[in-house]
Design a protein around this nucleic acid. Structure first.
Length: 884
RNA sequence: GGAGACGUAGCUCAGCUGGGAGAGCAACUGCUUGACGUGUAGUAGGUCACAGGUUCAAGUCCUGCCGUCUCCACCA
């Protein structure tokens, strides 16, 4: 008797947590340096500490867990390195809001106190998302859990910062950057999204000094910035304005005078061909200003209100000021016209506030050299994208990369390790706290830079900082570089690229060999799941209702790398149904195992054709699944396991074997039981990476053991279990069974009624196969009697109903219930055959086909033609009989 | 403006290196046979967007075209 009993229906709730706990207890997730094994490493994209599990995480981590579990079973020392990200701005905003609700102002309590609240927040919510990942079945090495702001990662950050600074690749400079007026911090280019917005083109006249009544007409989408204009530019080749260059204009509303300059940046064709230049508030104008030595006049406060230089507009919000300025220009008669115009506006990707270009002293990473190195690894294939075409996105971004603005005016994050000498102002970049003495003046008092680092600066180091870098730890030596990175295409720019160039620079190696890109999980209408739409589906609810296995299967089936997918409840139900199916198959096998003993090993001679067939199939399956896993085609891999278990194993093999199991004296009963168990176990192993919980439960039940499937060996293709002839044989028999079923339905033979079946063929080989298949016809085709006969005439003499494999399968006349229906069916068959004959004949008359196609193909076609011809004769004959 | 992806059964999508058009769901017709109705047997439904080309042979490769979507981009 089996110790492990299975419930009548599959019910994942409760079961999954217990199984997960047992894995944890046994320490199976923990990977150690092991010289006897090859390492396989994946670093988990660290979720935000304050985050909540969403479908994107569920998909991302399911894929990773599949790969890790698979490699672990293959005998690799598989490390899945987990951890969380401090998520600088996201967390800071949440903590700030939380404090605001309590009536606490961030700036009143100050930096240190604020950081205490942040850490409290992190400690309270930091493990929440990790626990949610556990519900999913993630087999990450939790003992190695890391945090981007823990001691080791912070040390890595400071080390990298110092090294790059010494190299001159990190510098501080006053440059134009993206400023979020709401979050009050600088942003990198990657954090700015461009949205098309409907706006206007305001055409404004600037009077030419000294020439009464002459104006230069400029066009702008942002009139308020004119207060910061320091020139008007025209194209040097523009004939219209040749004489203007060098002249002076009066800037309306300010009384300032600004020059007209010539710069090739101006497009003659666009607008009026005259561009107002505002170096302090536009990246292009900034460049123009640099070229012409123009003054940079900042007219905005950090919150995007007009600053003290704006006269009567001081204190107004930028949009209020815009209105007021347009009104005033209109009154002065300087507003020429207003034209509707849509243009791209930069917004902050987190809060969607319109970003304001501003000149601010910020820290930058020089990108040219490191970008070059990152481009090379793709070319040398040390780094490969799956699917491949994503390398184009990667290359394009790197080829157009600008220096990376890494400083943020935030408190939560790694504070920039730059110190300013209190007496002489010397900048000292120093890891591990303030330097002791100023190298310039000997002073011992320093003030640290107030800014912190872009959150991606630390996550860029994740693949090696988590393994102990900058120390040369055994883990780093053994597990690094990692094998695969699994992530969505939406963070190639933010994260993947930055990891690659950081790793190349610091470790000299690409951080991973493959980047497996997946798409977005969308709702059933194809929309992005988002908080604002409220169309998000909570993975935890799905797990509660259908189980983690069902969720995982849903996420991975039919999902090709890089493609988005839609989430349907129907698909989850189907996954759950599959779980129930294999649950019950196992239950059925267990019931039979309970009744009799199964030998540990089997005498190969005792195996029947059906046994050898299914064993061969599961053997081949192992090969196919492995091949697809190797190519990261996880969707195809799991589809194959699914089809095998449901269709071949459950619907065919188990049904084939039932008569043997129910018989007391069948000598092959033990072989059947052995094969059932053997095949099931192999199938469960192949399924385990995808559906870890249920496979574990079933594996332990059928083996009556506490040993875990997750550390059992991955099935390997073995030539001695390849039975090609049985595969063809059973294939033929399956076709015959289907044929009988079809005949029965079309003849309206009641399912309860056993029918007499004739198999007639000229082919002795086929007759032999059908002799062997007798039993299956009886049980699977509800045949009362099966008669296999030699077909001497070439045409069956009775009700020819279906024709397959050079044989006629029929149920005699007396079983016929509806002759009209039979005629109708045969007419259809005849039409089909006519088509086939036409096609086959055509091909065989095609000289080019005959001369150029492989000989084997031609032979096959000839055989087909002969077969069709013969079948046609039979159908015709039969029809004429029936019509009588 | 540049780049990429997609367009296959009513719906959602597979189809890898060219040779048989597929799955799930939905629909229709049956089935209380001793694992499972979260099941089972069967049926119907497609000019593989369109037009050319390469090839003995194209959903599969090439070109063009129509449509959908995404990403990147400083046109004031």
């Amino acid at each position: 008797m089996s110790k492990k009993e299975l419930a009548k229906t599959y019910n994942p709730s409760g079961m999954e947590d217990a199984i997960y706990q047992s894995w944890m207890d046994k320490g199976y997730f923990h990977a150690k340096v092991n010289p006897d094994k090859k390492p396989f490493t994946i670093v988990m994209p660290p979720p935000n500490v304050t985050g909540q599990l969403h479908m994107g995480h569920a998909l991302d981590n399911t894929l990773q867990d599949i790969l890790i579990r698979w490699k672990r079973m293959q005998g690799y020392e598989a490390l899945w390195q987990p951890g969380t990200d401090h998520a600088a701005i996201a967390t800071e905003v949440r903590v700030t809001n939380m404090l605001k609700e309590k009536g606490i102002d961030k700036h009143e309590i100050g930096r240190e106190k604020f950081l205490e609240y942040c850490w409290d927040w992190k400690n309270e919510y930091g493990s929440r998302i990790l626990n949610q990942l556990k519900k999913l079945g993630s087999s990450a090495d939790w003992e190695r859990d890391r945090f981007t702001m823990d001691e080791g990662c912070s040390r890595a950050v400071e080390t990298v910062f110092c090294k790059l600074y010494e190299k001159g690749w990190i510098y501080k400079g006053s440059r134009i950057i993206n400023w979020c007026p709401k979050c009050q911090t600088s942003l990198s280019d990657a954090e700015v999204e461009h949205e098309d917005q409907n706006g206007f083109f305001w055409h404004i006249n600037y009077p030419v000094v000294g020439e009464e009544g002459r104006f230069v007409e400029i066009a702008t989408t942002r009139p308020e910035t004119m207060l910061g204009d320091t020139a008007v530019a025209v194209n040097p080749e523009d004939e219209r304005y040749q004489d203007l260059v060098g002249k002076t204009l009066e800037l309306p509303l300010t009384g300032r005078q600004i020059p007209v300059i010539a710069d090739a940046y101006v497009d003659k064709e666009f607008g009026t061909g005259c561009v107002k230049i505002t170096p302090a508030h536009d990246p292009n104008d900034f460049e123009v200003g640099k070229r012409h030595g123009l003054e940079e006049i900042n007219i905005l406060n950090d919150d995007a209100t007009m600053n003290g230089l704006c006269g009567k507009y001081t204190g107004m919000d930028r949009y209020e000021a815009r209105k007021a300025i347009v009104e005033d220009l209109k009154e002065l008669g300087l507003l020429v016209k207003v034209v509707p115009h849509t243009h791209a506006v930069g917004t902050h990707d987190r809060c969607h506030t319109t970003v304001e270009p501003m000149i601010k002293p910020q820290w930058f990473v020089k990108m040219d050299e490191m970008a070059k190195a990152a481009l090379d690894v793709v070319k040398t294939e040390d780094l490969n994208f799956v699917p491949e075409h994503f390398d184009k996105t990667y290359i394009h971004w790197l080829e157009n990369i600008k220096d990376w603005c890494i400083s943020r005016q935030l408190w939560w994050g790694h504070r920039i390790p730059a110190y300013y000498c209190d007496s002489c102002g010397e900048v000292v970049v120093h890891a591990g706290g303030a330097p002791s003495v100023c190298p310039k003046c000997g002073c011992t008092h320093f003030t640290q830079d107030e800014d912190s680092l872009d959150t991606w600066f630390s996550s860029a180091l994740w693949p090696f900082s988590t393994l102990g870098w900058p120390d040369k730890t055994p883990e780093l030596e053994y597990f690094y570089p990692t094998d695969v990175l699994v992530t969505g295409y939406d963070i190639i720019f933010f994260w993947v690229i930055r990891m690659v160039f950081s790793a190349l620079e610091q470790t000299g190696k690409s951080p991973f060999k493959y980047v497996l890109i997946h798409g977005l999980v969308r709702d059933d209408k194809g929309r992005k799941m988002s908080k604002s739409l409220g169309n998000g589906i909570d993975p935890l609810e799905i797990i509660d209702k259908y189980g983690a296995d069902a969720l995982r299967l849903t996420l991975v089936t039919g999902n090709a790398p890089g493609n988005d997918m839609r989430f349907y409840y129907e698909r989850v139900e189907n996954s759950r149904n599959f779980a129930n199916k294999i649950w019950n198959a196992t239950r059925f096998i267990l019931m039979n195992l309970d009744k009799s003993d199964v030998p540990e090993t089997i005498d190969p001679d005792m195996l029947t054709g059906a046994d050898r067939w299914i064993l061969s199939r599961v053997n081949t399956l192992a090969k196919e699944v492995t091949e697809n896993m190797d190519k990261f085609e996880l969707g195809i891999a799991v589809q194959k396991v699914y089809d095998f278990l449901w269709d071949e194993f459950c619907d065919w093999y188990i049904e084939m074997v039932k008569p043997r199991l129910y018989s007391e004296e069948d000598p092959t009963k033990a072989a059947a039981l052995w094969t059932l168990k053997q095949t099931l176990v192999q199938g469960l192993r192949l399924l385990h990476p995808f559906m870890p919980f249920i496979t574990e439960a079933l594996y332990q039940s059928v083996n009556d053991t506490d040993d875990s499937i997750m550390v059992s060996p991955w099935p390997v293709y073995k030539e001695e279990w390849n039975f090609a002839s049985e595969e063809t044989e059973i294939g033929t028999i399956k076709d015959a069974v289907r044929a009988i079923r079809t005949v029965r339905t079309s003849m309206n033979v009641a399912p309860s009624r056993k029918a007499k079946v004739y198999v007639v063929s000229q082919d002795a080989g086929i007759r032999k196969i059908f002799e062997k298949g007798r039993l299956f016809f009886a049980s699977l085709g509800s045949a009362s009697e099966v008669i296999v006969q030699e077909d001497k005439s070439g045409i069956a003499d009775d009700a020819v109903s279906t024709l397959i494999h050079n044989a006629s399968i029929y149920i005699p006349m007396e079983e016929l219930v509806d002759i009209a229906k039979e005629i109708e069916r045969l007419e259809k068959e005849r039409a089909k055959l006519e088509g086939e004959l036409k096609r086959s004949n055509g091909m065989l008359k095609n000289e080019r086909f005959l001369s150029k196609a492989p000989a084997q193909k031609v032979e096959e076609e000839k055989a087909k033609l002969a077969k069709y011809q013969k079948l046609m004769d039979q159908v015709t004959e039969r029809l004429s009989q029936l019509r009588k």
